[in-house]
Design a protein around this nucleic acid. Structure first.
Lengths: 342, 342
DNA sequence: CTGAAAGCGCTTACAG
DNA sequence: CTGAAAGCGCTTACAG
């Protein structure tokens, strides 16, 4: 029945290569993985056979034999703004350089949450990146307890959970940009548009905001803090409401560029001049920042670098068990016109 | 030596579940995969054991046994603009619904090109999405000849290559937006900023542009076609040069929103009023479109839908060998202010 | 409806 | 330096 030449799965196997090269499969494996020193001649024959047959090892078989997948997983929020491309690029490139694949999943929308089995886990991945609020503290704790390698992006580790976390200098960046408004532009009533209440970045940026006020003897006025949700629409609504109710302020520090954009929109609609009447600054240096009118002064978050750093940390954790518990990347003030600079 | 309770790989296997449920591994497999009808009682015991032990099948073992990976691959251009997030989301979600994983790779930068083995191929994937110009015609042809399931995104199939291709109504969209400039706003000297010369979208948009001119008896003037490269910087340079050399035009149809943004920038710098002196329109409806000043009139490309359609096509190809050779998704005119509308 | 057995394509002690 | 053999954890004819 079965013809010996038939290739049932449609791909070349290591045995065919071995036969072709006149060696054993073990030798082929060792040559390809450089996992033992092999004689010159045998090596040459193997390499020739591999090239001739176009052999590529089946990932599934390697994974099964080695007990690892050589794959890293990443869950992206359902939202998916332009913010994630640089992150993805950093992770994918750095992972590829270390010969790891990247499996991604889009977070299930709220409601359908956690319906079936988790898309990413130790059944198909050697490690997982956890972004911002894609997982709860408890979920992170549980994964970690199972001994599953994790790296956190844009958030720090829950207490007692010893995993690498890569973040940015939120507090410093926020303080610097608010101080810029105070010192360079003489603003004194600076409003803050915060992000979601459970968002760590937002909390730290608010801290920086308050530190800057304090450092310059300005009072903190709770009335000047409103909800921007890191999103245009709510930010616009908040600023419109402020204007309607006659709140006095001469600057707005938006928690991110999205809410800054909403703020600009609200101000423009009511004829408030930016930066003359009200200065506006943001955070992230998203793609739109340069295109807003006036061009947005903001804090640049090194997103791609952060992705790369996270890959290095998780690989280090997986390979040697050691890692930097927390890596905090510096940010950079990006001065444009919305703050009042020329 | 080896304790019988030791779990060397740190995960529950199907044999443990079988033992726990008092059945064979075959039965467990059948229950989980619904691949044969199993007695009620056995089913219940298996399910209970699975739940109790928290069993999740190892992907590698399944893949090896089944000869498939249940994974789809996607190569993203190195560039990685905000354009890709919706695409990725559409693909990832639709794939997840069909129980497929998504493996992504970032295209190697030019120069390092194709250095090692391909990151994505039949060794780790059941099918591959090919975006725009990420692969050459020859590469596509070769993959197809190897019988590897492919779906093309934002490009049509090379001649003689019978694979599903999902595109958008480039020509119609371009014709419509140019006709809008002609009919509604009375523009008669409309310039075109084309994309890369090898880009299919750009060629089709140029065709739509020319069709619109022709339909309204306007002459085609080669001087009015310049390079925008689907990118801000070159578009800005081209428009600046036009202005400097005194080229007369009363509208610009930019091949994409990125080049439209560059055009607006160039016009603003030289004090040309938009849309009063020169109307500007784009293509894609990227995130920045609404934020440009004036807000950009453009053509909306249904990127997420396109991703979903591509998944359905490749799955159909893989499962039944049948597919729509070409799916062309409708686009939609998005009227804002840069064309002259109020 | 159910199980024993073979097999998927690799890797890796073990032995030489 | 090299090979035979066992094993990774599943699935799936085959037999009953």
């Amino acid at each position: 029945m079965a013809t010996s030449r038939v290739r049932p799965r449609g791909h070349v196997t290591i045995d065919e290569v071995a036969r072709h090269a006149g060696v054993s499969a073990s030798t082929v494996s060792r040559v390809l993985n450089r996992t033992a020193s092999i004689g010159e001649e045998a090596t040459a024959r193997v390499l020739a056979a591999v090239a001739e047959l176009g052999y590529v090892p089946q990932a599934a078989a390697r994974n099964l034999a080695q007990g690892k997948t050589q794959t890293l997983g990443m869950v992206l929020p359902d939202a998916g703004s332009d913010f994630f491309m640089p992150l993805l690029r950093g992770i994918a490139e750095e992972a590829a350089e270390a010969d790891y694949d990247l499996l991604i999943a889009i977070q299930q929308r709220v409601g359908a949450r956690r319906s079936l089995r988790q898309p990413l886990g130790r059944h198909n991945t050697d490690g997982l990146f956890v972004f911002g609020s894609s997982h709860t503290d408890d979920e992170i704790r549980q994964l970690h307890r199972q001994g599953f390698p994790l790296a956190l992006l844009y958030r720090s580790a829950p207490v007692g959970v010893d995993v690498p976390a890569v973040t940015i200098e939120n507090t410093t960046g926020a303080r610097q940009i608010v101080e810029h408004l105070i010192k360079v532009h003489g603003r004194r009533r600076i409003a803050f548009l915060r992000g979601p209440l459970d968002n760590e970045d937002s909390a730290l940026r608010e801290r920086g905001y308050r530190e800057a006020l304090e450092a310059h003897g300005l009072p903190f006025d709770p009335a000047l803090v409103g909800s921007g949700e890191f999103y245009e629409v709510p930010a616009q609504a908040t600023v419109s409401a402020w204007l309607t109710e006659g709140l006095r302020f001469d600057a707005i520090f938006a928690g991110d560029d999205g809410s800054a954009s909403g703020a600009l929109e609200a101000l423009a609609r009511q004829g408030v001049r930016v930066p003359h009447d009200v200065a506006v600054v943001g955070f992230d240096d998203a793609l739109i920042a340069r295109h807003l009118v006036p061009a947005l002064t903001t804090v640049r978050a090194p997103t791609e670098r952060l992705g790369r750093a996270a890959v290095r940390q998780i690989l280090s954790l997986m390979q040697s068990g050691t890692f930097e518990p927390s890596t905090c990347l510096p940010v950079e003030l990006v001065i444009r016109q919305s703050c009042g600079c020329p």
